[in-house]
Amino acid sequence: MSTTQIDRLRELLEPLAGERGMDLEDVRITPAGRRRVLQVVVDADGGVGLDACAELSRAVSERLDETNVMGAAPYVLEVTSPGAERPLTEPRHYRRSVGRLARIRLREGGELTARIVAVDDEGLDLEVPGEKGRRPTVRRAAFAGIAAARVEIEFSRRAAGGDADEEPDEEPNEDPNESPKEA
């Protein structure tokens, strides 16, 4: 069985990500004119910040310089985290998305958009919005019953324990030039 360049890169880069508490999610090589772009996608339970990506990028660059896995052709290295609407394919992806809204396509047919409220080894609990005036319901979905899932972007994401539509605790001042009123 022959090992592909992506497989060799994964073997080389996975330990570097793991040493930093990250999971190597994907490795892609795409042509870009006379060069290639090597994209290394990593994630972690608390997310991956810019500093962590920069540190890993330096380590990956050093490791690639020590080997010939990329060959002689020029390339650009990108170390990044998954996008906001990333596909959910592993239990850790769902675990990292607890509290987020997701669009889920079921193997039995049908699709639903629901909030991930809990995840365990077999599947997840989803808060499915109710019809107008009705409370949301919790539905169980086994990983084996999910054909595809993706996080949905929310522009008014609710805070933990609250609703996105809740009124603020304080009333804002009507006139921006007016100072707050004393009670």
Rank of each mutant, 00 (worst) to 15 (best):
S2A: 08
T3S: 12
T3P: 00
T4A: 03
I6W: 04
D7K: 09
L12E: 06
L12K: 05
E14W: 07
P15R: 08
A17H: 01
R20C: 04
M22I: 03
M22C: 02
D23F: 11
D26V: 02
D26Y: 00
R28V: 09
P31N: 06
A32Y: 11
R35W: 12
R35N: 10
R36K: 07
R36M: 01
L38H: 01
V40N: 06
V40A: 04
V41G: 03
V41P: 06
V41K: 06
D45S: 07
G47M: 07
G47I: 07
G49I: 01
D51A: 08
E55V: 15
L56D: 08
R58D: 13
V60D: 10
V60A: 12
R63S: 10
R63L: 01
L64S: 12
D65T: 04
E66F: 12
T67L: 00
N68R: 15
N68P: 01
G71S: 01
A73V: 14
A73Q: 15
A73R: 15
A73C: 04
P74A: 05
Y75N: 10
V76W: 11
E78Q: 12
E78W: 00
V79E: 04
V79H: 04
S81V: 03
P82Q: 02
G83V: 01
A84N: 02
A84Y: 03
E85W: 02
E85F: 03
R86W: 05
P87N: 09
P87G: 04
E90P: 04
E90C: 03
R92Y: 03
R92V: 12
H93V: 08
R95T: 14
R96N: 14
G99F: 05
G99R: 04
R105W: 12
L106Y: 08
R107Y: 06
G109W: 13
T113C: 04
R115S: 02
I116T: 09
A118M: 04
A118S: 15
D120V: 02
D121F: 02
D121M: 05
G123K: 08
G123L: 06
D125V: 13
E127L: 10
P129H: 05
P129S: 08
P129R: 10
P129T: 11
E131Y: 05
K132A: 14
P136I: 11
T137R: 15
T137I: 10
T137G: 06
V138E: 13
V138W: 02
V138M: 04
R139E: 15
A141C: 08
A142C: 03
F143E: 07
G145L: 09
G145A: 15
G145I: 10
I146W: 00
A147L: 11
V151N: 07
I153W: 00
E154G: 03
R157Y: 02
R157N: 05
A159C: 06
G162V: 02
G162N: 11
G162S: 13
D163S: 12
E166T: 11
E167M: 09
E171D: 07
E171V: 09
N173E: 14
E174I: 09
N177A: 12
K181R: 14
E182F: 08
E182S: 13
